[in-house]
Structures are given as C-alpha cells and as structure tokens.
C-alpha cells in the first residue's frame, strides 16, 4: 500500500558520533515538519544525544534558525570532527 503524503517517512542521514549514538547512519521520522521539532524528537528518542552539538542540513544546506521542511526533504545531522 502506498503511503499518503502526510505520513510518508522523512529520511535522515547521520554522521560521526551522532550515527553512533542513534545506532545507525540512517533513520526515518514521520509527522515532523521543522528542525526545532526534529531536535526535540531526537532528544526524546535517543537520550545518548543529550548534550551533543550538531548542525542540521535541509536539502544539503546547513540551516541555523528553526527551519521548516516537507516530506520530500533530505535531512542530515552533522557533528563537528576534531581529529587531525
């Protein structure tokens, strides 16, 4: 059965330590439409992310303010790397 537009899963790609803490490099969310709500959802679902800082890209652009997205969007979670 095909999913309706409202319930279609949104794909999230995680990098670095964020992928480690959520236990995989890809996850999906549903019914979330802005980056503020996404951060809240992630924090509730993955307590291991508590206190970790990361940036969010929506459609391959890093966003700063709370940014809305739709279920066609591609989301990426990018933490800073320190190693050299």
């Amino acid at each position: 059965m095909q999913q309706s537009a409202e319930t279609k899963d949104i794909k999230i790609i995680a990098f670095g330590i964020i992928a480690e803490k959520i236990g995989g490099r890809e996850l999906v969310c549903n019914g979330i439409s802005d980056t503020g709500a996404l951060r809240q959802w992630l924090a509730n679902k993955y307590p291991g992310l508590n206190g970790l800082k990361f940036s969010i890209a929506v459609n391959r652009k890093l966003v700063h303010e709370n940014c809305t997205f739709d279920n066609e969007s591609e989301i990426a979670l990018l933490p800073p790397f320190s190693g050299g």
């Binding site: 670095g16 330590i17 206190g51 970790l52 800082k53 940036s55 890093l62 700063h64 933490p79 800073p80 790397f81 320190s82 190693g83 050299g84």
Partner: peptide
C-alpha cells in the same frame, strides 16, 4: 562558527587517540 556555532566540550567528541583511525583516511 557558521558551520558549528557552539564549541563542543572536548569530551563530547573523542579524538583519534581514543577511537582509532586508518592512516589512509587523513
């Protein structure tokens, strides 16, 4: 700072001394 506005605490992200790395990556 446009890429990462907030400095992370050092302990948030382990470095290569702690996590290991294949030399070819750097």
């Amino acid at each position: 700072r446009d890429l990462y506005p907030e400095p992370p605490a050092a302990y948030e992200i382990p470095n290569c001394n702690e996590t290991g790395v294949l030399g070819v990556l750097p």
